[in-house]
Each structure stands twice: as structure tokens, then as C-alpha cells.
């Protein structure tokens, strides 16, 4: 299978803190990958490097074999990489229709963008909220709006940083269904803390710990591994 995205020794330092420490990882086309790891393991920072929000201190990033290290965020997005950030990133003063429309306007004409925006919102069960102000929506609804903005332009790789945080059980199930469905056509990398959710969607799991990849395996093996348990229980790992 072709490799979509890969990193080679990716490193991000903040002063004395090494948040991402020589991560080498690759995502194949069509893959659904879960990233797990305790708080502060460096998952979000890793994503910020991938999406150009941070310029990495070291290492390389490749997209379909091409070195894209250090590109600006908008240029990375144009390659076909969409991200839902951990801290929701929305246009609070706009409506979901306007926001999703804008996500699509880069690729489509006005009418087509509107049609696709309606479809994207309906797919996530928030069609009725299309003309509300995003700033007035509930947290879970906002998560869904952001998800709609990210998936509507159909990027080749979708990065989701804790997409279900703050969602109701119902919304979480809908998101899990959506992720599986999206995965038929898009590669997805998702960070989650909820083990049931991961079991429900994942095949391959990568465990981050202290900025490094601790292990990478099938979900069942990962959860059975004592090292992973130690990490989550806060014990030191040698």
C-alpha cells in the first residue's frame, strides 16, 4: 500500500522541553490509525508539526514521498490534509453553513459549495443548526461543526485530535460511525482517550509516551501490553 504521510526523526523542542522526540511514523493510504498516550505525551504537538503550525526543530516530514517540512499551514492544507484541532477552532461569529461553505469554496463554486455544505451538515446530524451562530452552540455541536468543516472538502488525510471530547454518548456514536464511514475513502489519524471508542474503530494503534513512540501494534495487542498499562497508570518506563 502506498505511503501517504511519513515522518523521519521528527523533533520539536520548546526551550528545555522536548515535546516530540525523534518520531518516525508512517501512514498508508486508506489507513485508520489511533494515537494514544497519556497527557503531555506530545500527540498534539506532533500534529501541529505535521500541519505546519510549528516548524519542527529537527527531522523531516514527507507527503507522498515529497519533503514538505517547514511548509506553511495553508500550503499543507492544500496538499489534502485536514485537521480538527484539540482546542475547537471555529468561526464563532459565522454560521455552520457559512463556515463549511468557506471550507469548500477553495475547491468549488458558490452553488456547489452550498450544496455540499448542506450535505456535510446533514451527514453529521446538525442540518437544523445550519443558520445559527456557532458561538451560541453547545460544545458537542461545535465539535460536529468543526468536524464538518474538516471533512467536507474531502482531504486525503484527516487528522482528528480528540474529536469526541465533550460530546454526548449519542454524538460520540455518530462520530464513530462517521469516522468508519469516512475511512472507506480517506486515511484517518485520530487521537482518543476513550478505550471503547478506540476498540470500536481502530485497527492499528500507536502509543506515544514522553514525545516518543512507545509501541505500534494491533489494538488488541496494545491494550494487552504491560508497558502501555504502566504508562497510563503513570509508572516510569525503562
Amino acid at each position: 500500500m502506498t505511503t501517504l504521510l511519513s515522518t523521519d526523526g521528527l523533533t520539536m523542542r520548546f526551550g528545555g522541553v522536548t515535546a516530540v522526540d525523534g518520531v518516525t511514523l508512517s501512514i498508508a493510504a486508506g489507513e485508520l490509525r489511533c494515537l494514544i498516550g497519556p497527557n503531555g505525551a506530545g500527540k498534539s504537538t506532533f500534529f501541529k508539526c505535521l500541519t505546519g503550525q510549528y516548524k519542527p526543530s529537527g527531522g523531516r516530514i514527507f507527503w507522498r514521498g515529497r519533503d514538505v517540512t517547514g511548509l506553511d499551514s495553508f500550503a499543507i492544507s492544500r496538499l489534502g490534509i485536514g485537521i480538527k484541532t484539540q482546542v475547537p477552532s471555529l468561526f464563532d461569529g459565522l454560521t455552520p453553513m457559512e463556515s463549511v461553505g468557506l471550507a469548500l469554496r477553495r475547491l468549488h463554486g458558490e452553488a456547489e459549495a452550498r450544496r455540499r455544505a448542506v450535505r456535510a451538515l446533514e451527514r453529521l446530524g446538525i442540518g437544523a443548526l445550519g443558520h445559527r451562530r456557532i458561538g451560541l452552540l453547545a460544545h458537542g455541536q461545535r465539535q460536529l461543526v468543526e468536524l464538518a468543516m474538516v471533512v467536507a472538502p474531502e482531504p486525503d488525510l484527516i487528522i482528528l485530535d480528540e474529536p469526541t471530547a465533550g460530546m454526548s454518548a449519542d454524538e460520540t456514536n455518530r462520530a464513530a460511525d462517521l469516522i468508519r464511514e469516512l475511512n472507506r475513502e480517506h486515511a484517518i489519524v485520530v487521537v482518543e482517550h476513550d478505550m471503547h471508542f478506540i476498540r470500536a474503530i481502530a485497527r492499528k494503534v500507536t502509543v506515544f509516551h514522553q514525545g516518543r513512540v512507545l509501541m505500534e501494534d494491533e489494538a488488541a495487542h496494545v491494550f494487552a501490553d504491560p508497558r502501555v498499562r504502566d504508562v497510563y497508570l503513570g509508572k516510569a518506563v525503562s
Binding site: T51, Q53, D72, S73, F74, S77, R78, G82, I83, T85, S89, L90, F91, D92, G93, L94, E98, S99, L102, A103, R105, R106, E110, M149, P153
Partner: peptide, 23 residues
Amino acid sequence: RFGRVCVAIKENELRAELLGYDV
């Protein structure tokens, strides 16, 4: 589209950038 993107940038620069617009 240009004007709407400008308004979106005012709302949230990062999101506009992540949607592929050159802020």
C-alpha cells in the same frame, strides 16, 4: 470569496489557515 475569507480570518486566523487560505 476574498471578502468572506477576510471576515473568517478576523474570526479565527488559525482555522482559516487550516482550511487552506493564505492568511
